[in-house]
Design a binder for these strands. Structure first.
Length: 568
DNA sequence: GCCGTTTTCGGCCCGACTGTTTTCAGTCG
């Protein structure tokens, strides 16, 4: 549904329609993407529900219901008739907006990116008025990069670049403050580029130093206050430099999200104020801008954590003094999923325990795999019995850490579990996960998951969808139903901290805690070093409005054990 | 296309950089 709405926005943009009408479609696409539950398919009921949502009126509600029912949109087919085919594809290239896309499609008969590449090669492009040599060269590069695949990067993979660049610039004389902003700061699971904000005096010429940094492959743009580069890794990095008195305003602006900024500026406007990246203004007089707190305060709000700035109700919550006290890394007291050399882990039981101890944890659950998935070399009932005895022996030697006896048990395609009931009942922590048959029809997948979670020994549903970012979509099931059963049975849902999983995601986290589900944040570590991945999971939980009080592994051991025993 | 203790019509966030033309439109974030 979101894709259809976005296509409608693209088509309208090519037509040169009212920009606010275009924005309405894009906002609606975003809203639809974040719907907590599927629509009913009953047009009247769907429309009634949809018009309650912000930014959705009668018209869009009707259109969304139409897409839900028919899979397409009559209005889109009608509007598309006036638009040269292929022009939408051209708009995906940096430097090509609606005007140029339309111009190229009409003047050159270009219908696709391949067609544009041909026009560049033959020199036809340069004969179009408004397209010179520089533009041609840039497009040639953009085409090469785009066709090579310009995807988003996992945030955790971008982190070393972000931190290294910020550190190099911070070390320069005359640089006052510098931070990585953008979706990186909001902790989105993937980032399209890195956005840096710095304050420095005008004589520092920071953008010049920036574009000369080691690792820069090409300079996409450079002015006195703003510059963009492409790193050899393919990652784009933008830098914005402002005076110190504007640093907070620039940080808000570059942290976004765009939708959050638009709404925030709207609030300022209602008070006769103007917010831009330099500060908060009444007329030409600057009232605030040195810190983010100043900026939010100027519109009567407390500071809002970056992870919440997605225009998902955070401004309203801030106004009511109802912002959640988000979970922090230091709240975590233990890890409830990890693997050892007994299955596919690379660390021994002892090495994992030692690493958990050095993190200051009170407990670590060792949850090796079962046997169904052959490649992980999992444990059978005899294997788990041996492992439990080893854990008993280890616990007798440990002081500050308790190792919990666990398993990550495969959910079979029929919803039964890959371990016998007697063994399951002896374990301290039973995590169940999907590792196969991800593509079952949603109804069947829902039945499978519900059956698995109904088993009396199950404590945690691990990486629930099984998705792998940019590689595998994950299982589809009725998340609302699963949450209802999880609450009823006291089963917890995992937020898996592996950067490629981050499963469940932020939106699911939020609807899970709203339903009363208790989340856990686990690393699913396959080595001692991977126990450090916890921060990525905590960040994802924060994006889902999760608080310390929600999360089971912020509890001290005794209370966690009470929770687990209560289940038996 | 949405929305309303400033409005049911007339607003809707705001500014930097590029390239090409020659005063600014287009694009981007």
């Amino acid at each position: 549904m979101a894709r259809v709405l976005r296509e409608m926005a693209d088509v309208l943009e090519l037509q040169g329609a009212n920009p606010f009408r275009i924005r309405a479609y894009r906002n609606a696409a975003r809203t639809v993407e974040e719907l907590p539950a599927p629509l009913t398919g009953n047009a009247r009921r769907d429309v009634a529900g949809l018009v309650e949502l912000p930014g959705i009126g009668e018209d869009l509600a009707g259109k969304i219901a139409e897409i839900a029912r028919t899979g397409s949109l009559r209005a889109l087919r009608k509007e598309s008739r006036d638009v040269p085919s292929g022009a939408i594809d051209l708009m995906r290239l940096p430097g090509i907006g609606p005007k140029r896309a339309r111009l190229l499609a009409e003047r050159l008969g270009v219908r696709s990116l391949d067609g544009l590449a041909r026009a560049v090669r033959t020199g036809a492009l340069r004969r179009v008025r408004g397209f010179g040599g520089r533009t041609e060269a840039r497009l040639r590069e953009a085409l090469a990069a785009h066709l090579a695949d310009a995807n988003r990067t996992l945030r955790a993979h971008a982190a070393p670049y972000a931190e290294a660049i910020a550190a190099s610039l911070r070390a320069l004389p005359g640089v006052e403050r510098i931070e990585v902003a953008g979706s990186y700061r909001r902790a989105r699971e993937t980032v399209g580029d890195l956005d840096l904000v710095a304050s420095a005096g005008p004589r520092v010429k920071l953008t010049e130093r920036f574009v000369a940094l080691d690792g820069v492959a090409s300079v996409l743009g450079r002015g006195p206050t703003k510059a963009s580069v492409l790193l050899r890794s393919g990652l784009q990095v933008d830098l914005r430099v402002v005076p110190e008195a504007s640093y907070g305003a620039a940080l808000v602006y570059l942290t976004g999200s765009k939708a959050h900024n638009i709404a925030l500026r709207g609030l300022a406007r209602e008070r006769g104020l103007k917010i831009n990246e330099y500060g908060v203004y009444r007329g030409t007089r600057r009232l605030a801008g040195r810190t983010e707190q100043d900026v939010y305060e100027s519109v009567g709000l407390p500071w809002i954590p970056p992870e919440l700035r997605e225009q998902r109700g955070e401004l309203e919550a801030a106004r009511q003094g109802a912002l959640p006290p988000l979970i922090e890394n230091d709240d975590i007291r233990g890890d409830l999923q990890s693997h050892t050399t007994s299955s596919d882990g690379r660390g021994t039981l002892e090495a994992m325990a030692e690493a958990a101890q050095s993190l200051g944890y009170e407990y670590l659950a060792i949850t090796d795999h079962t046997t169904r998935i052959k490649i992980v070399g999992g444990l059978d009932r005899a294997g788990f019995r041996r492992q439990m005895r080893r854990i008993d022996a280890l616990n007798a030697r440990l002081h500050s850490l308790t190792v919990l006896k666990g398993a990550e048990v495969d959910i079979n395609p029929d919803g039964t579990l890959d371990l016998d009931d007697a063994t399951l009942a002896e374990l301290d922590v039973v995590v169940v996960s999907l590792h196969s048959a991800f593509n079952l029809p949603p109804q069947e997948q829902t039945r499978r998951v519900l059956r698995a979670l109904s088993h009396p020994s199950v404590d945690i549903f691990g990486h629930p969808t099984g998705r792998l970012l940019s590689r595998r979509r994950g299982a589809r099931f009725d998340f609302g139903e699963v949450c209802r059963l999880a609450v009823e049975r006291g089963v917890m849902l995992e937020v898996n901290a592996q950067p490629e999983r981050l499963d469940i995601d932020d939106v699911a986290c939020r609807s899970a805690i709203a339903a009363g589900v208790r989340p856990v944040v686990s690393t699913d570590a396959h080595s001692a070093a991977e126990l450090h991945l916890m921060r990525w999971g905590v960040d994802q939980a924060r994006r889902g409005w999760v608080e310390k009080r929600h999360v089971a592994n912020t509890l001290p051991l005794s209370r966690l054990q009470a929770l687990l025993h209560h289940r038996r």
